[in-house]
Simulated assay, not measured.
Amino acid sequence: MAFRTTAVVRSGLKKWAYNLSGFNKYGLLRDDCLYETEDVKEALRRLPDHVVDERNFRIIRAVQLSIQKTILPKEEWTKYEEDKLYLTPVVEQVKKERLEREKWEKDY
């Protein structure tokens, strides 16, 4: 029973922190907020064009809303349940490949 209660509390805490972060009020996803390192740029290059276009639209809309000092209507906010990690798995793969390549170059 304690495990279920703990899982519910953690889930509630995650949702609270997600909403507190504020990026969802601009319609952004978590992966839209990643700092663009070389690994992230390579991962973006590997994504299909329509996914990158959707990401660019969300970012441009968020910048425009920020300049206007406003947010989206509440029904258009990104919900915790709808937020999917579309870029993180690709970034992790790119990092893994880069580390493997660096190890190979170092050893051979």
Rank of each mutant, 00 (worst) to 15 (best):
M1I: 08
F3G: 01
S11E: 15
G12H: 14
W16A: 15
A17M: 12
A17L: 13
A17H: 12
Y18T: 06
L20T: 13
G22V: 01
G22S: 08
G22R: 03
N24H: 03
K25R: 15
K25F: 09
K25C: 13
G27Q: 05
L28S: 01
L29Q: 11
R30H: 10
R30V: 05
R30L: 07
C33Y: 04
Y35E: 13
E36T: 07
T37W: 08
E38T: 13
D39A: 15
V40P: 02
E42S: 09
E42G: 05
A43K: 04
A43N: 05
A43P: 03
R45L: 15
R45D: 14
R46N: 08
R46T: 05
P48M: 02
P48D: 10
D49E: 14
D49M: 13
V52W: 06
V52C: 01
V52K: 04
D53A: 15
R58L: 00
I59Q: 06
I59W: 00
I60P: 05
R61V: 04
I67K: 14
I67E: 14
L72R: 10
P73E: 09
K74F: 08
E75Q: 09
K84C: 07
L87G: 04
L87M: 08
V90L: 02
K95V: 10
R98D: 01
L99I: 12
L99C: 14
E100Y: 11
E102T: 00
K103F: 10
E105N: 12
E105S: 10
K106T: 06
Y108A: 13
Y108Q: 11
